[in-house]
């Protein structure tokens, strides 16, 4: 199994980080939507936000790691059957997803730290508040957090649709590469 990427394959680190991020983003979105609708007497009223914030801040570190890994690894070249507009659109969506994920992390952090309180990460340590007391900080950050999350889910859906299209319609190796499967180019038949 490859650790690093090659010119044709993704390594195990890039693949793991990709699917970990996908899992965490979807999980946090569901958790976030669910926890903001809990009744006051729900046993999860206090624990759900604690887990959401702890996982969210840990996710920030994972995202940073992923970007660093991406910078110091070569990227497998585009598949030859991909059209120019496809690789351009994919590149745009990838870039946008990274930027928006970072915006979600920052805006979420700004909600909870709006009055100067830090955020506990799994009770292990506390991330201090750095930017506090902006006008309607918690409300504005909350608005951004919610709508950018909705945008990311939509883009991720588009991203997944693209992958499925390549897999089932074009029958190329786009999705197989990200699943770490051996390429089997079916184009020759």
């Amino acid at each position: 199994m490859l650790i690093r990427n090659t010119s044709t394959r993704y390594g195990v680190v890039a693949i793991s980080l990709h699917w970990l991020v996908a899992l965490v983003v979807i999980g946090l979105a569901i958790l976030g939507l669910w926890m903001t609708d809990l009744t006051y007497y729900s046993p999860y009223y206090r624990t759900a936000p604690f887990w959401h914030k702890s996982i969210g801040l840990t996710f920030a570190a994972v995202l940073a790691l992923r970007l660093i890994w991406r910078m110091f690894n070569r990227r497998p070249s585009h598949l030859p059957n991909h059209k120019r507009w496809e690789t351009r659109l994919a590149g745009l969506v990838h870039g946008l997803l990274y930027v928006l994920l970072a915006v979600i992390v920052v805006s979420g952090y700004l909600i909870s730290t709006a009055r100067g309180d830090g955020i506990s990460v799994f009770g292990w340590f506390e991330v201090p508040a750095l930017l506090t007391g902006l006008t309607s900080q918690a409300d504005r950050a909350g608005f951004v957090h919610y709508w950018v999350a909705i945008t990311v889910l939509s883009l991720a859906g588009l991203h997944a649709l693209g992958a499925l299209k390549h897999h089932f319609i074009d029958r190329d190796d786009t999705l197989r590469r990200m699943l770490g499967l051996r390429p089997h180019n079916t184009k020759e038949s």
Binding site: S112, A114, D117, Q137
Partner: peptide, 13 residues
Amino acid sequence: TASVDSNHAERDK
């Protein structure tokens, strides 16, 4: 009413 203040950012939101 937006100036409500209970000394807790998330609760005030």
